[in-house]
Design a protein around this nucleic acid. Structure first.
Lengths: 107, 107
DNA sequence: GTCCTATACGTAGACTGCCTACATATAGAC
DNA sequence: GTCTATATGTAGGCAGTCTACGTATAGGAC
């Protein structure tokens, strides 16, 4: 998976895996890998800053929790985030339609 | 169309519009707009440097021509470029499958 | 009791490539 | 003679991703 291709779609991915249940960063990375059948292996240096950015933007709410001695920051979708996810889904459809119409023109 | 979303897909778009016939930069921009039904309106500051980059990489071959007094640089796909286009198409399919599986999981 | 791996979070700095804004020039319409 | 479409290009900036670290706990292997 070419890394640059993900640019601009990271937000949609993160919001989407958090749609069903709150997760912490590490679990998000695993969820992305599993849901994509291994195609998406996003490095921590991408995910953690992105989560912070989305939290600052009000799309996610983060909270520290403890599992034994380990600390986790669990993120959940806010209402704003849920709306943003709907927008991201719609944008994704427009995007694939536009690129697809160029890459695979009707013959 | 969010600009960042295009990152990493520009090469595929350019190679694709040049698949059928050689075109110059301005015509490429128009072809992208037409083929996408207006969704793709790529600025010249994106296209011209990208064409140079693809030429340097050997995927395109550019040649100066004259239409009356106007100068045009017409680009055509090289054999290498044609192979690269096939790779880009395949990568595009993998990409949409991967992102799609996260954004629109089977329910 | 030490090593290794998985789990878990995070930052610094670099890179890439796309964008905005500008500069230049010809052709044709009006 | 002015405006628009055609046509190419550069300079500088920006944002987000990546690589490469650094830190720490838990648990199993040995």
């Amino acid at each position: 998976m070419n890394a640059d291709a993900l640019r601009g779609h990271m937000d949609a991915l993160l919001l989407s895996v958090l749609e069903r249940e709150p997760l912490h960063g590490y679990a998000i990375i695993e969820a992305l890998r599993e849901r994509s059948g291994g195609a998406l292996d996003v490095p921590t240096g991408t995910v953690y800053p992105a989560l912070r950015r989305l939290e600052r933007a009000g799309l996610l709410a983060g909270e520290w929790a403890s599992d034994g001695g380990r600390k986790r920051r669990t993120y959940r979708l806010t209402d704003t985030g849920r709306k943003a996810l709907a927008g991201e889904r719609s944008a994704w459809r427009s995007f694939t339609t536009a690129i697809g119409s160029v890459l695979d023109p009707l013959r």
